[in-house]
Simulated assay, not measured.
Amino acid sequence: MTLKNILSATALSAGLVSALAAPLAAEEKTDFKLAWSIYVGWMPWGYLEDSGIMNKWADKYGITVDIVQINDYVESINQYTAGAFDGVSATNMDTLSIPSGGGVDTTALIIGDYSNGNDAVILKGEGGLADLKGKPVNLVELSVSHYLLARGLETVGLEEADLDAVINTSDADMIAAYATSDVEAVVTWNPLVSEITGSNPDANVLFDSSMFPGEILDLMVVNTETLADNPAFGKAVAGAWYEVMGLMAAGDDGRYSFTTVKPVEYTVPSDGPVGDILRACGRHPWRPSHLHYIVKAPGYRTLVTEIFPEDDPYLDQDTVFGVRDDLVMRYHKKQASDFPHGMALSGKVTEPFLHVEFDVTLATETG
């Protein structure tokens, strides 16, 4: 089956779902539901629900947002398409096929991450992609896994017709299926990939999504009409998501680390009264690039601060006077081989990167 046929067949399948249960018409309302399934990039949705952060943001806008875990990925999208949920976690290609095929206009509200290695084709034992010829492959049929398989096969001149069979297997059953003797290869996503490769010495990753970076987008999508009629819904969900993205706990030794993109300089709003003041003072609207920190610990004062790279052109002319010498840091250029272990991008960085160290000291509440 070719990529074009995969998308067409998925759309047909979704059309059957919509015939059984037509999507509900959008309207102004106050109660909303989101569905998510197990994937490494979507785990924060469960935390949003359990931590109360989603409730906090929903309360701010006078609505309720329930976040429900569905154990079967395709089933979660089918339920969204049928109108049982206002949004669902899904990849870009699955959004373009299943909901679209069911006549549901859908908007990508959150781009959670790019797969970049989190989806993989795994063979039992030695071999390469070409060795899949004549073998059965287990995957979630007509999903992003089917797409990944097709992308991999075309790199070695094969098509789905060259396989013995594609066996539809729920993501909830994938780990157990791999352990059976009749399964020879699977296509799945993390954390299932890590569990399979970590528990089975014979697991051989033949192809993964890092080989075409940026192509698979992991999203939270919502019904376009629902979002248009209820903008508070989108604001609450986006606010809750980005609050969680800003949370990170230090280790027992007080150390922390994270990867991000080096920011660039930007302008503050220069229209209205702010613009009038800047022009009257003969000042430009530019701020130097910086990373914001909000650091909290029990018994200590919360610290809100920022750090600036020493080579920024606006370092000595920040329009809001936020730069201090102790907040100016040097970004050191490192080779890809120096990238630290134990991080999400470990083993995937192929070009030089920048590294900066910044120690944080908190004052006690009584100090």
Rank of each mutant, 00 (worst) to 15 (best):
L7V: 02
L12H: 04
A19T: 07
E28R: 15
S51E: 04
M54Y: 04
V74A: 09
A84M: 13
D94F: 09
I98Y: 06
P99C: 04
P99K: 08
G103T: 12
V104S: 01
D105R: 11
I111M: 12
G112V: 03
D113Q: 14
D119K: 08
V121T: 11
I122M: 06
I122F: 02
I122Y: 04
D131I: 00
D131L: 01
L142Q: 13
H146D: 15
L149S: 05
G157D: 02
A165C: 03
I167Q: 11
A177L: 05
Y178I: 04
A179H: 04
W189T: 14
E195F: 11
G198T: 10
A203L: 07
S209L: 01
E215P: 06
E215K: 15
E215R: 13
V221M: 05
T224W: 01
G239W: 05
Y242Q: 13
G246R: 12
L247G: 09
D253Q: 10
Y256D: 03
T260W: 08
V264N: 14
G275P: 09
P285R: 06
R287D: 00
K296Q: 05
P298R: 07
G299V: 04
Y300T: 02
Y300Q: 07
L303P: 08
V304H: 08
E306H: 13
I307A: 06
I307D: 14
Y314V: 00
V323P: 05
D325C: 00
L327N: 11
L327K: 15
K333D: 01
F339G: 03
G342D: 08
M343F: 12
L345Y: 10
F353E: 07
V360R: 06
T361R: 12
L362M: 07
E365R: 11
